[in-house]
Design a protein around this nucleic acid. Structure first.
Lengths: 296, 296
DNA sequence: CCAATAGTGTCTCTTAGACAATATCGA
DNA sequence: TCGATATTGTCTAAGAGACACTATTGG
């Protein structure tokens, strides 16, 4: 009736004698790259404001990396999933509950946290800046939204001994008010006849704690990749938006200019018209759109 | 000189007094979906063999899920990354060391392992069947390569109260010799004005242990997605291959037939000609290709 | 010879890029 | 009126889908 294992135990007997404390375990943190898009102040009354891509960072109030900036996050508790932990931290940090949340990658390099064995299960959150209402966290002496740019600096390909290595060097620049710092992140793709591998490395890093430069780089790459074939960018805008605003969001994420006509054709199926228009803009009013629920 | 935290400690002092044993920690396992493509036996001497997509499963020799099939994997040790743990398990299970290995997702549902709090950091490995040499693992009473199919059964969209829900029901069928079982996995995408979320659920499950049906489904989705815009499929073939073989690999992954001419145009930049040809095939010889290192 | 695969040519249809023309608001 | 953005049209180039035609082998 009840199958027995090699020790002659039923499942119930096995569970009763099971001890999990025999080996060392890691701490697991959920860390988040929270993106939002904000308007830069504009001089000209009739010009549209430029958009800026920003992420939330928290100044560390304790060791290690005291005074450096870190991603919001915290340890996962036994009664929650990593995703619930991320959502909880997000709510504690920003007061926002209902957002786009996507798991990115679990970082587990040894020594990535000097205290002890800590893995980071990282998430990306997209919120629209009108929902934000910054709260001070308990572990945080300070929190700020940093403008992000992420640009390819150098590209290097080499082949040796049947192994092909491609290295891409990116500059990650973060700025908020008077604070500004830069990290250089290298993405290496190794391809041999039998295998392929990808890895990130931090070449230089000024103001960021832990390996968070890597996590941010990973998040931006994911965001850039998904923007092109999903409607993910609309999570960064309020419910109603103009197509120009949507295009600006795409442009600030991809860090390149797009052609208007082609852009509108491309997103045509992702959005649905409303009867609303912008007003008092100093130029022709723009129709407001919302997400098209039918498609995708 | 040395910055002090709120307790007046330097970083060194902080590290010396730091205790990490204050809270409960999860066990973290690295579980792997190891794909390979094998030839089905063929009757006709001049017909090419059909390809089959297969994954490695191990029959559980202990509780829980005694006798069920599980993904190869094991707990991550303090001196290794999750990726190293996956590579180690892969080597122990198959004797193969140099393969394509990609992290998929970290599963952390509470109760996913009835013993204790266990997260699974899952990986996908691609190996070509000629490298394989199956070894029996210590925790495994048995191991086998299962043929996989993954098909959309039903699609359901509904909108209510400003929330849009799309459910996709997939049938995951695994078979090896006389063993055959089926799991139904549902992928739910929830989109509301403020957020979007994605989740997997297992609706029914015959022979698989834990939540491994979900992990396999996730791996297949990732593989299908990447096949279309990368050369990832070539990791499933030996160093030299014909374009028809490559097309068969694409077809068995995507579970749909492709047009020859269009396929060849599409992969043209991913491969490089050799001077070799197939022989004794009962039909026109086929040129052998290898991966093109210059591109992508 | 012929069954079967290999490899190429070409037509169409769709999509992306580029650019231009026209429309409309408010200080 | 004018400076700005909004919206649409069209030409072209590139790519995907569909299908057909020719080439080559071993039994």
């Amino acid at each position: 009736m009840y199958p027995l294992d090699d020790n002659g135990l039923t499942e119930r007997e096995f569970m009763e004698q099971y001890q999990s404390e025999d080996y060392e375990k890691p701490s697991v943190a959920a860390d988040m790259v929270i993106f939002t898009v904000t308007n830069a102040e504009e001089d000209n009354y009739r010009k549209l404001p430029d958009k800026e891509l920003r992420i939330l960072l928290i100044r560390r109030g304790g060791h290690p990396f005291l005074g450096k900036w870190a991603l919001p996050g915290g340890f996962v508790r036994p009664d929650e999933t990593t995703e619930q932990a991320a959502a909880r931290e997000l709510y504690e940090e920003t007061g926002v509950a209902d957002v786009y949340l996507e798991q990115l990658y679990t970082f587990s390099d040894i020594g990535r946290d000097p205290r002890t064995w800590v893995m980071s299960c990282s998430y990306m959150a997209l919120i629209n800046s009108s929902q934000v209402q910054l709260k001070a966290g308990d572990d945080a002496a300070d929190a700020a939204w940093f403008k992000v740019t992420y640009r390819l600096l150098r590209e290097n390909k080499e082949t040796s001994d049947g192994v092909y290595i491609k290295k891409l060097e990116y500059e990650l620049k973060l700025s908020s008010g008077d604070e500004e710092f830069t990290a250089i992140v290298e993405r290496t793709v190794t391809t041999s006849p039998a295998s392929t591998g990808m890895s990130f490395a931090i070449l230089s890093n000024e103001g960021l704690a832990f390996d968070h430069a890597k996590i941010i780089a990973y998040a931006i790459e994911r965001l850039r990749g998904k923007v092109n074939y999903t409607g993910i960018a609309m999570n960064l805008l309020p419910e109603e938006f103009t197509l120009t605003e949507l295009q600006q969001v795409y442009e600030v994420i991809l860090d390149k200019e797009l052609l208007k006509a082609a852009f509108r054709r491309k997103v045509a199926d992702l959005v649905a018209e409303t009867d609303q228009y912008t007003e008092n803009a100093g130029h022709r009013p723009s129709r407001l759109y919302r997400r098209n629920w039918e498609e995708v």
